[in-house]
Design a protein around this nucleic acid. Sequence first.
DNA 1: TTTTTTTACGCAATCGTTCCCGGTAACGTT
DNA 2: AACGTTACCGGGAACGATTGCGTAAAAAAA
Lengths: 346, 346
Amino acid sequence: MKFEAVTIKDIAKALGLSTSTVSRALRDSYEISPETKQLVLDYARQINYRPNPIALSLKERRSRSIGVIVSEIANSFFSQIINGIESIAYSKGYNVIISQTRESYEREVINMDFLSSRSVDGFLISVSTETKDFTHITDLYERGLPIVFVDRMVESVDTHKVIADNFKGAYDATTHLIKNGYKRIAHLANSEYLSITKERAAGYRQALADAKMEFNDSYLQHCLHGGMIYDEVDKAMNELMNQKHKPDAIFASADKLTTNSMRYCRAKGIIIPDDLAMVGFSNLDLTELLSPSLSVVRQPAFEMGQVSAELLIKTIESKRPVTEFETRVLPAELFIRESSGKKKKK
Amino acid sequence: MKFEAVTIKDIAKALGLSTSTVSRALRDSYEISPETKQLVLDYARQINYRPNPIALSLKERRSRSIGVIVSEIANSFFSQIINGIESIAYSKGYNVIISQTRESYEREVINMDFLSSRSVDGFLISVSTETKDFTHITDLYERGLPIVFVDRMVESVDTHKVIADNFKGAYDATTHLIKNGYKRIAHLANSEYLSITKERAAGYRQALADAKMEFNDSYLQHCLHGGMIYDEVDKAMNELMNQKHKPDAIFASADKLTTNSMRYCRAKGIIIPDDLAMVGFSNLDLTELLSPSLSVVRQPAFEMGQVSAELLIKTIESKRPVTEFETRVLPAELFIRESSGKKKKK
DNA sequence: TTTTTTTACGCAATCGTTCCCGGTAACGTT
DNA sequence: AACGTTACCGGGAACGATTGCGTAAAAAAA
C-alpha cells in the first residue's frame, strides 16, 4: 500500500513558482514578497502541506529524534522517566525512540547499534545490569554523539549525568529500620556493576556505622539482573534466610528485588514485618495496596527524565563541542508504611 | 555537536569506483565481479560502513517504522502489548515509535498527526477513552495508511483488529461471582465510547441473565478515563455504595478501575471480599501481592501485540491494496484469588 | 577475423528540501 | 544617460542511496 504526500513541488507547480520560492515563502524569508508568501501559505494550508521530515533529516544530517535505552518500560521507575523525557522532547520537537534491554548486555549493544544507525541525534542511557564493558558507549561518545546517563551511569564517561541521591536514600531507609528496632539488617542489592548499587550500598553501610552496628558481609547479596528473574531473588533470599542468625530486616535496592522478595516471603510463610521488615527502592504506584503496604525510597523519576532530556537536547543543539558536564543529583524520598513497622518484642 | 558518518561515497573515492558500483557490490548484485565485491565488502567492514536509513527512507518513501498509539506505557497491559509488538517488529527490521495519549482525545489527534508527518509506515492503535470522533483515523486510513486496531477498536473502520474475548472474559468473571454466592453484582465500566466497554458489559449482562438475575441499571457505572483519575472512580464508587441496596460484588472492567476501587475500599474501610468482592480486567503482575490478592481476567497482551504487529507489517508490505481484513479474537483467562472468595453468611 | 554476446562498470536521475548563486526588473542617484 | 541598489524570484547542486540505461572491454560464437 502506498500513501502519497503533498510536496513542495506540487505547490510550486500549482502556483507556477519555483520550489525555491515556495520553500522560502514557507520559511518566511525576506526575499519573498508578501503577496507571494500569502499565496503560498494559503495554498499550502489548503492542501494540508507538511514538510517531509525525512528529506529534512537527510539535508540537515540530523533526525530530531533521541534514543532512550532502559531495561524495561514495564518498570514504573522507567516508565515515569520516559514520561518526563517525552514531556520535554515533544515540546522541543524531538521524537523519542524507546529501546528495552531487559538487563541484557547483548541487547544493549544491539539496540544502541540499531538506533545509532537510525541516526538518533543523541542517547539517554540507563545501562543494563549486565553491562561491565562500555566500549559500545565510548565508541559512540568519541565519535561525537551526545549521551546523557540517567540513574545508572558509567563513571568513566565524562558527560551529563542525572541521578537520584542514592546514598542518602539508602542511608535514610537503613536508619529508619535501625530506629524501628531492627538489629540484623540485610541488603539485597542489584548487580555489582552498577553505579547505583555502589552508592546505595555505601549509604547502607554508613547508616550501620553511624549506629555503631557491625557490617556483616553475609548480609549483603547481589542479584545480577536486578531481581528481574525470580530465581535469582529466590537464591539470594535463601542465602540470607538460611543463616544461623538470619536477618530481621531487608533493605532491597531495586523495584523487582523488592516485589520478588515479597513473593518469596509469601511463598515461605515469612510474615512481613513481624518476621522480616522490608524497605525497598521502588517507584511502584501500588505500594499502599500491597500486603502489607510497602515502605519505599521513591526517586523523582519524572523529573529525572525531564532534566536529562533537557541536558541532552541542550548538548545536541550546542554549536560548539560541549566540554563542561554536570551531574545533577535529585532527592530521593522515604515513604514509611507497614512493611517496616516497629519491631515487636518476641 | 556533529557526528560524521561514513557514506557510500567515501568507499567509492577510496577504492576508485563509482557509487553505483559500491552500492551494487554491497547489495550483492550479479553485475559486479567477485573481486570487486570482496574489495568493497572488506573495506566497508573495515571502516564500519552503515547505510544511511534516512536516505533510504527518502528514496523508497517508507521509513520502516510503525507508530503505536496507547494510553499509557505504565499500564502493564499496554507495556506487555508493546513488548509483543517489538518482538515482531524488530525481527522484521521495523522500528517502533510509541506514543501515549493518557486517555486524551486531543493528545491522540496531535500524536497521530505528528507520527504520520514523521512518515510512519503504519499505525497500531488502541484509541483513547475520550475518543468518539474518528475522523483523524479515517482520514489517514483513506489516504492509504495501514492501520491495525489492538484491544480498543473502531467498529466503523474496516481493517485488521486484534482483541481479547471480552465478552467471554466478562461472562466468566461475572458467573464466577454468582457461583460464589454474590447477589448484587455491580459493573464498574470504562468509557462508554470504547468497543471493549460494550463487549464486556454484554458479557456481564448475559451472565446475569443466564443466572436469572436481574440487571440493575444503577449497578452500572462508567468512568470516562478508565479509572486513570482517582476522582472519577471515587465518584462512581460513591454512586454504587451509597445506594440503599448496595452491591456485594464488583466486576471492574479495566486495570486502573480495579486498583483505584481497591484504593477506595481501603480509604472507606470496606473489607474485600467480606463487604465487597472484586474481580477486574487486569494484566498487573503483582495481583498476588495485593491485599487481598486480586482475582482478574487476564488478556494475552503479549500475543495480542505480536499478532497485531504481524498483521500490520503484512499489510504494509503487501503489493496490492488489501481489502480482506480479519478480526482476531484471543482468549482471556480468569484467575481466581482472594478478592472474590466465597460469600460469607452474615 | 569479424560479429555477437556477456561481463562489469559508470552516468545520471530520483526521493523532498534547502540554499548558494545567479538573474532581472524597477527605481534611485549622480 | 549611466550606473548602483533593492526587491524578487529561479536554476541547480547537495544530502545518501538505488537503479535504469548506456557502453567499453573481454569473451564467445560465427
